Amino acid sequence: MTIYGDSLSGNCYKVKLLCSLLQIDYEWIDIDILAGETQTSEFLALNPNAKIPVLVTEDQQVVSESNAILFYLSQQSAFFPAQVYQQTLCLQWMFFEQYSHEPYIAVARFINKYLGKPESRLAEFNAKQEGGNKALSIIETQLQKTNYLLGDSISIADICLFAYTHVADEGGFNLNEYPYILNWIANIKSQKNFVPMTLSM
């Protein structure tokens, strides 16, 4: 199995983290987004949408979109719930991440960490703060009730939202305002076989 990704990308880190937690062996191929490596003909043959991560299975099946890859890898594992309602809640959180969380927190982080917060994108960076804090508040409210997003057990919903949430400070968000999120982050980091985002592959 081969994963194409950027080690500092939260979307790619989701996949790397789940593979480590499940002890799935894979080959990692680092892709430099800023150098245009997702625009090569070879990469576009894998994913015409020119985005990472991309998973290529041992039988050469290709899966793109980070949350779809999480779904694929988590089947028949404890990270994907067995009951339909819990499965639905899991997907609900994953859609929330893509539409109400990642567009604010990940983009603010990209502008700040990758681009150095240039003057030309400062207004956009500032505009992302309200939506990002709203998303963090929603997660905080849930974690006041349960240890993990679906209850007492970790799932791919947690992996999905952990990736960018635990580095939200790099996008200008103050995680000290969210004590339940900080506790949740600590719980995930304490999982057996946890790996940090910046671990070299």
Rank of each mutant, 00 (worst) to 15 (best):
P118F: 09
G5N: 03
K134E: 13
C12F: 01
F79P: 09
Q92D: 02
I69V: 10
F71S: 07
P196Q: 12
A157L: 03
L199M: 06
N147H: 13
L115Q: 14
L8H: 08
K113V: 09
K51A: 08
E102H: 02
K14M: 04
G5A: 05
N49K: 09
V195H: 09
A135P: 08
R121Q: 15
P103Y: 02
V167C: 13
L122C: 04
V63P: 07
N176K: 13
E170S: 11
G36T: 03
D25M: 03
G5K: 07
E27G: 02
L89N: 15
K51T: 13
Q144V: 09
Y72I: 02
V167W: 13
D152C: 09
I159P: 01
K113S: 14
Q92T: 02
K16I: 14
F125G: 08
V84I: 11
N193G: 05
E130P: 04
L70F: 05
D59E: 15
T141G: 07
S155N: 03
Y85E: 12
E97A: 11
L122E: 15
P81C: 02
I31A: 00
A157M: 02
A186D: 14
N193V: 05
A78H: 15
V84L: 13
F96D: 01
W93Q: 03
I159S: 03
V195A: 09
E58G: 11
G5I: 01
E177N: 15
T40M: 07
Q23E: 15
N183W: 00
G151T: 00
S77V: 15
L18K: 10
L122P: 03
E37R: 01
L17H: 04
S120M: 06
Q39H: 04
S120C: 07
K14V: 04
A45V: 08
S137Y: 09
T2H: 13
Q191P: 01
V167R: 14
Y114F: 12
G171L: 07
E42G: 03
A108G: 12
P196C: 08
S137V: 10
D158Q: 00
L22A: 14
Y104C: 05
V167P: 14
Y164K: 08
T198W: 05
L122V: 07
V107F: 10
F43C: 10
N67E: 06
L55P: 03
L115E: 11
P53G: 08
N112Q: 15
L161D: 01
L91S: 06
N47F: 04
V15P: 11
L44F: 06
H101T: 00
C12N: 09
N174F: 00
L22W: 11
Y180M: 12
I3N: 04
L115K: 13
L143Q: 11
R109V: 14
L91M: 14
H101M: 03
L149Q: 10
W28E: 03
T198H: 11
K14W: 02
Y85R: 13
N187M: 12
T146R: 11
